Simulated scan of single mutants.
Amino acid sequence: MNLRNILVPLGGLALVGFGFYAYGWAGVAAVVGGLVMWALLHFTRLVNVMKKAAKRPIGYVGSAVMLNARLAEGVNLMHVVAMTQALGERLSPEGEDPEIYRWTDGTQSHVTCEFRHGKLVKWTLVRPQADADTPTQEA
């Protein structure tokens, strides 16, 4: 169980208690208003990220190399979806931990990300090998 699931509600209750202790019912109203505003900001960000992701194909990213350079260990899945502006192609079975997603670009390079408990733990970039038979263009 994630400790954050316990500490965040306890912190909210502590803030409400402090608001009542310091300013009475006006303090409770101010703290509850601030907590509601905080929740609405997070909800709005989530809706905007999902709205942008809905407009792109699943598992597509503009540049897998740039995504690989921007990834950092410990970021959550919503942050990666916000960076790619697309949902990842799920490679792991539904409801199983770790969750594995893949994003592919137009050159068939792809980044495969592994998330444990919603946090990025490792990722790999795979770039296709250029065939020796195909001629390269020279400037």
Rank of each mutant, 00 (worst) to 15 (best):
A72G: 13
R116A: 06
L67P: 03
R70Y: 08
G34D: 00
R102D: 06
M66E: 08
A54E: 15
R45L: 14
A30G: 06
G62Q: 12
W38N: 11
K52F: 10
M37V: 12
G95E: 08
E73A: 12
V111L: 06
A29T: 08
V28L: 07
K51E: 09
E73T: 09
V121L: 11
G34Q: 04
N48Q: 14
Y101E: 04
A86T: 01
I58V: 15
L35N: 04
S63K: 08
L125Q: 09
T112P: 03
A82L: 07
M83V: 05
A86F: 05
G33N: 13
E89G: 15
K52S: 14
Q108D: 15
G95H: 09
N68L: 03
A53C: 13
Q108R: 02
N68A: 01
T124K: 13
M66L: 15
P57L: 13
A86K: 02
V126N: 13
T107A: 15
L120K: 05
T44Y: 11
E73P: 03
G95S: 12
H42A: 09
D97G: 10
M37Y: 11
R70V: 07
L91F: 14
G27E: 03
R90P: 00
G106V: 04
V126H: 10
Y101S: 03
P98N: 12
K55I: 15
R70N: 11
L71N: 04
V36L: 14
W123G: 00
R116F: 06
G34T: 02
P57K: 13
L91A: 11
M37H: 08
R45F: 06
V65L: 09
K51S: 08
M66W: 11
R102E: 11
H117M: 13
V32K: 01
G33I: 12
L67Q: 04
V80F: 03
N76Y: 06
M83Q: 02
E94Q: 10
F115Q: 00
R90T: 02
R90H: 10
I58D: 04
A30K: 03
S92F: 15
H79V: 05
A30Q: 01
G33K: 10
K119G: 07
V28A: 02
K55S: 13
L35A: 01
V75I: 08
R70L: 14
Q108T: 07
E96T: 06
N68D: 04
L87C: 05
V121F: 09
K122R: 15
G106Y: 00
T84Y: 01
G118F: 09
E73H: 08
G118T: 11
R70M: 14
M66F: 14
A30S: 09
E96Y: 02
F115E: 01
A29I: 03
P57N: 15
G95F: 05
I58M: 13
G106E: 02
M83K: 06
T84V: 07
K119C: 07
G106W: 00
V47W: 11
M78P: 03
M78G: 05
A82Y: 01
T84F: 01
Y101R: 00
T44I: 12
D97Y: 11
G106C: 05
A53H: 05
A69W: 05
A30V: 12
V111E: 01
L46C: 13
W123E: 01
V49W: 02
S92V: 13
R90F: 09
V36E: 09
V65N: 03
A30F: 10
V81W: 06
S109L: 02
M37N: 04
L120W: 09
K122A: 09
V81T: 07
S109D: 05
A72R: 13
D105W: 05
V61H: 00
